[in-house]
Every structure is written in structure tokens, then in C-alpha cells.
Simulated assay, not measured.
Amino acid sequence: MKWLFGLGATALAIAGFVWWFTSLPGPKQLDMANNAFPGDSNAKLLIKDQTYDKKLNLGMNIWASEEASDQPRPVVVFIYGGGWRQGSKDEYAFAGRALANRGYIVALPDYRLYPDAKFPAFLEDSAKALAWVHDNIARVGGDPERIFISGQSAGAYNVLMLALDRQWLGREGKSTDIIKGVAALAGPTDFYPFKGETRKNSFGSYHKPEMTQPINFVRADAPPLWLATGIDDTQVDPRNSRVLHYLILEAGGDAQYTEYPEMDHLEIMMAIAKPFRGKGPVLDDMVEFFESQN
């Protein structure tokens, strides 16, 4: 009978773990799965909860390589997605590890989310975070002359707007010239009129909706763009990346477009994490784009 009790206790423990694990946000589940696999071992959390906006109490985590370097390292500011309503810098540690393992200093900032904030608050926060990085990253071994910005979904929207619409960085006394390149994964670029609760919540009350759309800020002198999408994405139609790519090239700018077969909106981000890199070479392609701009 003892073994029956033991088996029952084990089953309850497993069920409890499964319930707890599935109750976590998706990115946190992905981060935990990522940590269960070997690799990216030379990445470390260099600074946790670095404040970049004292008034709003907004911070960032900064990741770096364990390996010493006598040269400043290139920098990636990664903005997470989540429909402008959810997400946390702590949930996306797997992205910090992945890029730090490739030799980058990685800043993962938080920003205000709905319902506490609507457009343009999340762009204002992202611009402040990028400005802070430009001013301070040299102190931790980063190169302020080689700053890339990246994001997925809502985060991709944020970084595209920072790169294309000069006003957001301009409010922080910065130029978009501080951006060496932009890697946007599954970014919404052309979504007016607003459909769906998420977009209506975050953008619907803004008095000039045309000012919310990245395609309305296409210019030849924008930072180089790498626009990536999964062909099976039903949340952000691949047309968004295709159209922006076409318009940037038509204007005489620098843009690359990559599409991944049999990959959807979430899987393009999952492919950054170790257990799912076999889905597609998203991480490799992103790093190749960054290196092509050095």
C-alpha cells in the first residue's frame, strides 16, 4: 500500500506543478523551458531593475556576456510584445540570454501598459529607455555608437515608430541616427481602422489616428530595417511587414524582408528560445542583420 500512497503523492505533485506552470504568462513559461536546456551559458544578468525613469518608476534589465572584452560591445535594446497590455522585462530573460551569448549588451526595458496607458505613452517610455541606454551604456561596456533596437509584435511596433517618426526620440533630445538598425518581428505597421479590442483600447481614443501608423512615416533616411514575419501569422498579417518593406525600398531606403514558413505570430518569438530554435533561424538571421550594419 505504501507504494500506492507514494504514487498518489507523486501524481498530485506533478498535477500541482502542471497547474502552476500553465498559470504563468506564456513568455515566462518559455523562459523556464529555455533554462531547462543547455546553452547560452556565457550570458549573465549584469544589472537588474536599472531605473531609467524615476518619476514613473520604470526600469530595465541589462544582460551581457560572461566573457571579458577589451572593446565596447554592440548593444541591443529589446522591447517585448504583449498587445500593449501585458508583458514584463523579467519574462523575456531568454531573449536577453540569447543575444548576450552572441556578444551583445542587451537592455530589456519595461514600459507602461493598458489600462494605465494608451498611445503614445508606450512610445514615450520606449524613447526614454533608448535615450538612457545611449547616455549610460558605455559605463557597463556597451558601445553607444552601435545601438540596435528590436522587438516582437507590439514591441516591434514600438521600435519601428522610434526609428521612423523622429518626434519620439526628438523629445528626449536625441536623433534617430543613434539607431544602427532595427529588427522587427511580426510588427503591426498598417492597422487603421482599428479592429479588435486590443487595438481599440490602446489607439482608439487618439485624436489623429494617422499619426499612429508606421507606414505614414516612411522615409529614405530611416535606420536600416529587418522585417521578419511568419507566413502562418493570423494575429498580425504578414502584409504589414511586406508593405513597409516595399514602401521603404520605393522611397530609396534600406530594408530587408524575411518570412518563415510554417511559423505563426508566437512561434517567431519562440524560435529565439533554445528549445524551439529548430523552428527557424530567427536568431541567426537577426544577428546576421546586426553584423551586416557594423
Results as ranks from 00 to 15, higher is better:
M161A: 11
N158V: 11
A93I: 01
N57I: 04
K54E: 15
G82V: 03
A93Q: 09
G103A: 08
F148Y: 14
P120A: 11
P74M: 06
A127K: 01
A131F: 06
D135V: 03
F78W: 15
Y111W: 13
N101C: 03
D165T: 11
L169F: 09
W63T: 03
E124N: 15
A129R: 01
L113H: 05
Q71E: 15
Q71S: 13
A129F: 07
Y157E: 02
I137H: 04
G87W: 00
Q152E: 14
A154K: 04
W132C: 02
Y114M: 13
D135R: 12
A98I: 02
W84F: 11
F122T: 13
D143R: 03
P120L: 10
Y114T: 12
I79R: 08
W84K: 03
K54Y: 13
D116T: 13
P74N: 09
V159N: 03
A93G: 14
L99H: 08
V133W: 02
I147R: 01
K55S: 15
A98D: 06
I79A: 12
D90M: 06
K118N: 12
F78Y: 15
D125I: 06
G103T: 03
E91W: 13
R85I: 05
P74L: 07
D70W: 00
G81A: 09
S65Y: 02
G155W: 05
I149L: 13
D110K: 08
Q86V: 13
R112M: 11
A98K: 09
L113S: 04
I137F: 09
P115A: 12
W132P: 05
G96M: 00
Y114W: 14
V133A: 03
G151F: 00
N136Y: 01
Y80M: 01
K118M: 12
D165Y: 10
A121I: 12
S150K: 04
V159A: 09
L169Q: 07
A64I: 00
K128A: 15
A95I: 12
G82T: 07
L56P: 02
G155T: 10
A98M: 07
A156L: 07
V133K: 04
W63D: 04
F122M: 15
W63E: 05
V76Y: 00
R139A: 15
R112P: 11
Y111N: 10
V159H: 05
G83P: 01
R97H: 14
H134L: 06
L164A: 08
I147E: 00
G59Q: 12
R166N: 14
L162G: 04
D70C: 11
M60F: 13
G59S: 15
N61M: 01
I105H: 04
M60C: 05
D110L: 09
Y52S: 03
A129D: 05
F78G: 00
S88N: 13
Q71Y: 14
A131K: 04
E67R: 15
N136L: 03
V75C: 04
W63L: 09
H134N: 14
A163C: 11
Y157V: 10
N101Q: 09
Y111S: 12
A156D: 01
D135S: 11
L56K: 14
Y114F: 14
D135F: 05
A156V: 05
A100T: 08
W132R: 06
L169Y: 09
D135I: 02
S150G: 10
S88T: 10
G142N: 01
P72H: 10
R146V: 06
S65G: 09
Q152K: 13
F119H: 13
Y52D: 03
Y80Q: 01
G151M: 01
A68R: 12
